[in-house]
Write a protein that binds this DNA or RNA. Structure first.
Lengths: 195, 195
DNA sequence: GCGCTGACAGATTTCAATATCTGTCAGCGA
DNA sequence: TCGCTGACAGATATTGAAATCTGTCAGCGC
């Protein structure tokens, strides 16, 4: 029957995200977060050892929201080439949608990600591993001809940077963008294909 | 016989580059440039209408030093696939060398380039046009099979961003870098090849 | 006992006064 | 005449004092 809201890490993260949205990355302080939670800032430090670790946790949540739907696609059955294309397009769409629906929040997460480079590296490794899985599957199906799926997965990731790395986000709104995506995907799938 | 040094735009650009190297981008002022030239800053404004246009001209010079050797490769005779690979490797080497030999100056030029986005766009168009030429040549030789050389050139440019776009410069020192370059080039050349 | 508070020291940010710079132009000197 | 100078107004950057924030911890109250 006790409805007193307990202070959990999860709740702090949610409220932190709100505060970031409201105040912007530069102005959002731990004191602001504590105020929004109606506790003292000391309590926040009970759950996160530093402001940096709090921000890192926010970044991690955000990246997980990107990688989870992708993992589902990677786990589906079916021919690898089509699946790889679907996976990549889903990745691009996820990023493009985020930047066009809420550019300020995207900028916030981008800066956050720069600070939390460990988390970002792990995210990248996760994504490349997913691609590697799809490519290995394609090789097993006889659809792809590559010497080493790991290297090939890294190459696919590198070769599609223009469409998923935030440094190029300003080009994602250009009208030629979808044509360019098509061209690169065609080239890469041809490059992987067994002949 | 008059050896009085005349104030030319070219001389101003050279000295400006020196000043940028010495003071750094943030601290280099038009007054500093004028002082280094031993003239009043009003004289500099006689040759460049604004500080921005002076910086733009410096950026342009720098980009031309990148594109000129590439244009020479593009103009050479020979089979297109090998030439395309050589051209791309020369592009990567040029960038990688610059960042590793003088990281501070690279950062300076990077910021300069951000400001002078018109100049950068023209540079990009120039490079893509060079690639388009090589690809068209490859199609004529029967080595490449692509529907549209223009689109394919843009795709090659997009797909190699990781190795020539300055946003990714911090990865160019990694030991895996040359492996990754090889992997992407292999994939792309396979993707272009007639079969 | 246990979780929270709030005061505190040192680090960081803000803000306004001050200094410097950009871009213009009337006038000097060759 | 013609290129250059240097004073000037408005814009931008620097500086240092004051305010705020981060991270800690002794102690309060449940």
């Amino acid at each position: 029957m006790n409805e007193a809201v307990v202070l959990t890490s999860e709740r702090i993260l949610e409220v932190t995200e709100d505060v970031l949205r409201r105040y912007g990355l530069a102005k959002a302080t731990v004191v602001d977060v504590a105020r929004a939670l109606d506790v003292s800032h000391g309590s926040v430090y009970r759950h996160f050892p530093s402001k940096a670790s709090l921000r890192e946790a926010v970044a991690k949540r955000w990246l997980e929201r990107v990688s989870k739907p992708l993992a589902e696609i990677a786990a589906e059955p079916g021919p690898a080439p089509a699946k790889l294309e679907r996976w990549l397009r889903e990745l691009f769409d996820a990023k493009h949608k985020r930047v066009c629906e809420d550019p300020e929040m995207f900028a916030t997460y981008l800066t956050l990600a720069r600070e939390a480079c460990t988390v970002v590296k792990a995210h990248k490794q996760d994504l490349i591993a997913q691609v590697e899985g799809i490519i290995a599957e394609g090789v097993a199906q006889g659809a792809f001809d590559v010497a080493d799926p790991k290297t090939a997965a890294a190459a696919i990731f590198d070769a599609t940077r223009s469409f998923h790395h935030p440094a190029h986000a300003d080009e994602w709104a250009e009208c030629t963008c979808s044509t360019r995506v098509d061209a690169v995907l065609t080239l890469l799938l041809r490059g992987l294909a067994a002949r």
